[in-house]
Each structure stands twice: as structure tokens, then as C-alpha cells.
């Protein structure tokens, strides 16, 4: 089924959150007003990215990250047009121009910056196609999305938007049990760590905000980025549940009477 929409109303951080948590494999195409981007994922991790504004060949990327001189890049561009990235990479490694690590670091920098740039797009039609892989001559990596999401969500400055996302500070937070997401692998700021250290199903968010001496705005933004990265979720604070199993909103008192009333509703609706 369709996984499409517009970044104007379904943000890029929500999209990455979805891809990461659903561990999706496939390719995301985004068409912006004057630019396009294409990102590929495997099991919810970023493996490849390119955008329409630059030459996405390995030679160009190595030149942009100063691993090749402009002259070397020019030669490659003129003479190695038909050589794929994997072959070119091997030749450059074997001839000692660059190391394998330098290539991987350059590519990672390039892919992450393509992803980061998408957080700033005001709009862009996106479509995710399952199981479409990057072309086989491209070198792919395996980059976790948590850090990219946290970094991107930090830039969210809209107060109203944050209040929509986290309307009530009377609720509590708990760590999710997503296998594969580990808070220790995430680069958190000191303030973010302070919030993390108070996360507990018993602590209402309001208390955490007060204890950590953050403004509600700062606090909401931190919580929002942790939620988007799939690390925490909102729950009702523990201890606030009614201790009796009775439903207080039913017009009858005893549990048996309540059950019989609900069963009458069930029978009636089945018969509609």
C-alpha cells in the first residue's frame, strides 16, 4: 500500500522515525520545489543518499571532502565516466591515493548531509518504494537513523508544533523496548542526558521539567526528539490508574451489573 505524502504536512523526522521503527528496506524519493533527493534504506538504516544538486559520483564526493584534488577529479570526470563507484574506489585504494576508511568517511559525511538537508525542506512530495535498492555500482553503508533524527529534531523551533506533539505534561515517559535502538549509541547533549536520567513511569513530565530546571519549550523539544528517535514513549503515569476494576462512567455500581450492561450493548450492536 501507498507510503506517500508531502513533507509540508508529514515531516521528515516523522518519516525517518517510521522507516527506522518499521525497519524498512527500500528507496525514498523526494521531489522538492527546485531539488530532488533519493535515499535508500536497509532494515531501517540509511545505506545510500544522493541529491539532484551535485555530482553524486565517488570522484566528486572525494573532491568535495578534499580527498582528491580538483585536477584529479577533472581527470576522473573526463576519462572514467563509464567506471562505477566500486571499481573506481578499488583503483584509487590500490594506487594509494585514498584509504578505504577515507572513502567510507567521505561517503558517510555526504549521505548524512543529504539527509540533514531534508529537514530544512518546507515541502516535497515523497514516496517510499519497498525493496528498491541503490544501483549495484554504488557503495552502500549502514548508518543508524537515531542520531540523524535527534540532530534534525533539535532544529524544530515551533512552539505550537511542540505543544501539539506533547499536549499534556501530566503524562509520564518510559523507554521503549525497540530492539536495535540503544540510547547509549546516541549523541546526547548534557541537557538531554539530564532529562533522560529522570525518565521513569512514575514521574510526570511536569515534574521532570521542574527538576531539570528547563523551560517548558526546551523540555518539550528534548522529549520530542527522543520520541522521534524511537527511544521513549508517552504513558499515563503509574499509580494514576483506578484501583477498582469498576468503570465509573457506567450508570450501575456493581461489577456484575456493569458487565451485564456492556454485554447488552454488545448483543445489540451485533444485531444491527
Amino acid at each position: 500500500m501507498a507510503l506517500k505524502g508531502n513533507l509540508r504536512d508529514f515531516s521528515f523526522s516523522q518519516l525517518l522515525n517510521l522507516i527506522s521503527l518499521a525497519k524498512k528496506t527500500g528507496t525514498l524519493e523526494v521531489h522538492g520545489l527546485d531539488k530532488d533527493a533519493l535515499l535508500s534504506f536497509k532494515g531501517g538504516k540509511l545505506i545510500y543518499a544522493q541529491n539532484s544538486r551535485a555530482d553524486n559520483g565517488l570522484g566528486a564526493i572525494l573532491a568535495r571532502t578534499n580527498k582528491l584534488t580538483d585536477k584529479q577529479y577533472q581527470v576522473i570526470k573526463d576519462r572514467a565516466e563509464n567506471i562505477g563507484d566500486k571499481e573506481l574506489g578499488l583503483m584509487l585504494i590500490n594506487s594509494n591515493y585514498v584509504t578505504q576508511d577515507e572513502i567510507l568517511v567521505s561517503l558517510k559525511q555526504e549521505f548524512v548531509s543529504t539527509a540533514n538537508d531534508l529537514f530544512t525542506w518546507a515541502e516535497g512530495i515523497f514516496q517510499f518504494e519497498n525493496n528498491i535498492k541503490p544501483s549495484p555500482d554504488k557503495i552502500s553503508l549502514l548508518i543508524s537513523l537515531e542520531n540523524i533524527i535527534i540532530e534534525g529534531s533539535r532544529q524544530l523551533q515551533e512552539k505550537e508544533r511542540l505543544e501539539d506533539e506533547i499536549p499534556s505534561l501530566d503524562m509520564a515517559l518510559r523507554f521503549t523496548e525497540n530492539p536495535g535502538t540503544n540510547i547509549r549509541n546516541v549523541n546526547l547533549s548534557v541537557k538531554e542526558w539530564r532529562v533522560v536520567s529522570f525518565i521513569n513511569p512514575k514521574n510526570a513530565m511536569r515534574q521532570i521539567a521542574r527538576t531539570t530546571k528547563l523551560t517548558e519549550f526546551e523540555f518539550r523539544r528534548i522529549v520530542y526528539s527522543l520520541i522521534q528517535a524511537g527511544l521513549v514513549e508517552i504513558i499515563r503515569p503509574e499509580g494514576s490508574k483506578p484501583s477498582s476494576p469498576k468503570v465509573s462512567t457506567l450508570p450501575v455500581e456493581s461489577t456484575d451489573d456493569q458487565k451485564s450492561l456492556v454485554n447488552r450493548l454488545i448483543t445489540r450492536i451485533r444485531s444491527l
Partner: peptide, 8 residues
């Protein structure tokens, strides 16, 4: 999908 945020 543009309404999912409001739904949340």
C-alpha cells in the same frame, strides 16, 4: 498523512 499529527 497530513492529518496524522492532528490525530496524535
Amino acid at each position: 498523512p497530513e492529518t496524522f499529527r492532528e490525530a496524535r
